[in-house]
């Protein structure tokens, strides 16, 4: 991860129940409930991803929980300001493990278009506050991009990908 972000020590589990863990991981990957946490423009695209045309619920990820206690996944959709930073950290801490974070949009990744000399209110990337699992670039990313982010996260959890990868034409 380089200089930015977190170095998570590899977890040492004394006894590993291989099969149980695998089944649990599979269940987790197929039931990623996001916390309703819209920050800015990207939140609208996150909603669009959950709506009729794109339908996140197909992957079991459409249950948006308003309480962080019941969510598995925090999608940081938009600019994180210095005033918002402590709130965001609290929300993350309120979520029960195992939990994941998707940084959606350029603002959440690095501050995006709002970084300029003399800026006084921006956290330049949400990974300075909480560990991020998947980055979805775009300003804002299309709903398809968020879906791909979900697939990436599932792949990260289970080690296998849901759909065959489509090779980019470019």
């Amino acid at each position: 991860m380089g200089e930015r972000g977190f170095h998570l020590e590899k977890e040492i589990i004394p006894v590993k129940f291989a099969l149980v863990e695998k089944v649990l991981d599979l269940a987790r990957a197929n039931s990623l409930w996001p916390v309703t946490f819209g920050l800015a423009c990207c939140a609208i695209e996150m909603m669009a991803a959950a709506m009729s045309r794109f339908d996140l619920d197909r992957f079991g990820a459409g249950v948006f929980r308003a309480s962080p206690r019941q969510g598995d996944l925090m999608i940081v959709t938009g600019t994180v300001t210095k005033k918002m930073a402590p709130v965001l950290t609290t929300l993350y801490e309120q979520m029960p493990s195992p939990k994941w974070v998707i940084a959606m949009g350029n603002c959440a990744i690095s501050g995006g278009p709002f970084v300029f000399e003399g800026q006084y209110n921006l956290v330049e990337g949400v990974d300075l506050l909480v560990p991020v699992d998947v980055y979805v670039p775009g300003c804002p990313p299309r709903p398809e991009a968020l879906l791909e982010g979900f697939l990436k996260l599932e792949e990260k959890i289970t080690g296998t990908r849901r759909f065959p990868r489509v090779e980019s034409a470019w």
Binding site: A40, C41, I44, T81, K83, M84, P113, F116, N121
Partner: peptide, 28 residues
Amino acid sequence: GYLHRMHEKMAENRTYQQFLPNTGRMDY
């Protein structure tokens, strides 16, 4: 102020053309 993105301050640091994309992000 939880989403204060400094548009007005930014305008003073940008040319007229450079500020154009900001407008769409103010009211998405």
